[in-house]
C-alpha cells in the first residue's frame, strides 16, 4: 500500500489548523530525510490561539476539581494506548529507543501525578488564617487565566507537558509553542488531546520559530503569565515585554533535567494561581 504523506497541523481551539500565513518549515527525520512540512506560526496565529484559550478558559475553571482530575487521568489513558507511536515521534521517527520509551512513560506518570493533585492542591495552597477580630478569614486560590508556554528543546514531549500540566490542573488555559527543532511529538499530542475529554481550547499547541512569536508572547496583555524555557537573552526579552502588563514570568533553564522527581510537586501549581482572601464576619 502506498504511504500517505501527512500534513501536520497545529491544535488550536479544539481544531487542527494551519498557520494563517500559510508558511511552513520542512522537518526531517533522524536520518536527515524530509518527513513533513510543519506550520510556521506567526503573531496572528498566536492571537487566534489566545482567543480560543479565552473562550475555553472560563468553562474549564468552573469544572469541579474532581472532574478536572478525571479528565487529566483520561488523557493519560489516551496517551498510553498510543505510547509506541509517541515514542517513535520522540526519537524523530527512528525506532523507539530506551531514551524515548522512558520519556513517554515518564510523561504518562506525570499526567497521572497532576491528575491526583487536581482536587487536593486547594487543601495545601489555601488556608484558614488566624485573625484578631470576629471573622473567619480564609485564603483560596484562583487560576490566573491564559498562560503562555515556551517549550524546551531537550525533551520535546516530557518538557512540554511538565510545563503545561500544573497550569491546567488549577483551571488555567494554555497557549504553548512547541520545541522548534523537534515539534512532531507536540503535533501528535494535539491529536491525542483532541480525543481526550479536555475541552477544546484549554490547551493550544503552536509550532514555528520562537523569534517570530517571542515579542507577542511577552506583550500580549490577555496572556496573564508565561512559563518559558529560555536562555538569558530570551528571558530578558520576555521579562521586559511582560513588565507593561504586569505579567508573571517563570523562567526555566534550557539544561533542566525533565526526568527529575523535583517536578512532581504542588509548587508549580501555585506559580499560576492567585490567592484570594475572604473575610467573613461571625457573631461575637
Amino acid at each position: 500500500m502506498q504511504k500517505i504523506p501527512k500534513t501536520p497541523k497545529c491544535y488550536v481551539g479544539g481544531a487542527f489548523v494551519r498557520s494563517e500565513s500559510g508558511r511552513v518549515a520542512p522537518l526531517t527525520d533522524y536520518a536527515g530525510n524530509f518527513f513533513a512540512n510543519i506550520p510556521r506560526c506567526g503573531a496572528k496565529d498566536l492571537r487566534n490561539a489566545v482567543q480560543a484559550a479565552a473562550k475555553a478558559g472560563a468553562g474549564w475553571a468552573k469544572r469541579t476539581p474532581y472532574n478536572r482530575a478525571q479528565i487529566l487521568y483520561r488523557l493519560a489513558e489516551m496517551i498510553e494506548s498510543r505510547s509506541a507511536e509517541l515514542a517513535a515521534a520522540v526519537s524523530d521517527r527512528g525506532s523507539p529507543d530506551l531514551q524515548s520509551i522512558t520519556e513517554v512513560s515518564a510523561t504518562i506518570s506525570r499526567i497521572v501525578y497532576f491528575a491526583g493533585w487536581a482536587d487536593k492542591y486547594e487543601q495545601v495552597l489555601g488556608s484558614v488564617n488566624p485573625v484578631s477580630s470576629p471573622h473567619f478569614n480564609f485564603t483560596l486560590t484562583e487560576p490566573v487565566g491564559i498562560v503562555g508556554v515556551l517549550a524546551p528543546e531537550n525533551a520535546p514531549l516530557l518538557g512540554l507537558l511538565t510545563l503545561i500540566l500544573p497550569i491546567i490542573t488549577s483551571g488555567n488555559s494554555v497557549v504553548a509553542l512547541a520545541s522548534r527543532s523537534r515539534p512532531y511529538p507536540a503535533i501528535l499530542l494535539g491529536e491525542m488531546l483532541a480525543t481526550s475529554d479536555l475541552p477544546g481550547g484549554v490547551v493550544n499547541l503552536l509550532t514555528g520559530e520562537r523569534k517570530d512569536l517571542l515579542a507577542t508572547f511577552a506583550t500580549h496583555q490577555h496572556i496573564r503569565a508565561i512559563a518559558a524555557v529560555a536562555d538569558h537573552a530570551d528571558a530578558t526579552a520576555l521579562e521586559q515585554g511582560a513588565a507593561e502588563s504586569l505579567k508573571r514570568v517563570k523562567i526555566l533553564s534550557p539544561q533542566t533535567d525533565w526526568f527529575s522527581p523535583k517536578h512532581d510537586s504542588v509548587w508549580p501549581i501555585r506559580d499560576f494561581t492567585e490567592a484570594k482572601t475572604v473575610w467573613h464576619p461571625i457573631g461575637s
Partner: peptide
C-alpha cells in the same frame, strides 16, 4: 501601544 489588548481594558 504595540501590544495586543485584553478585552477587560
Amino acid at each position: 501601544t504595540g501590544a495586543y489588548q485584553a478585552p477587560w481594558t
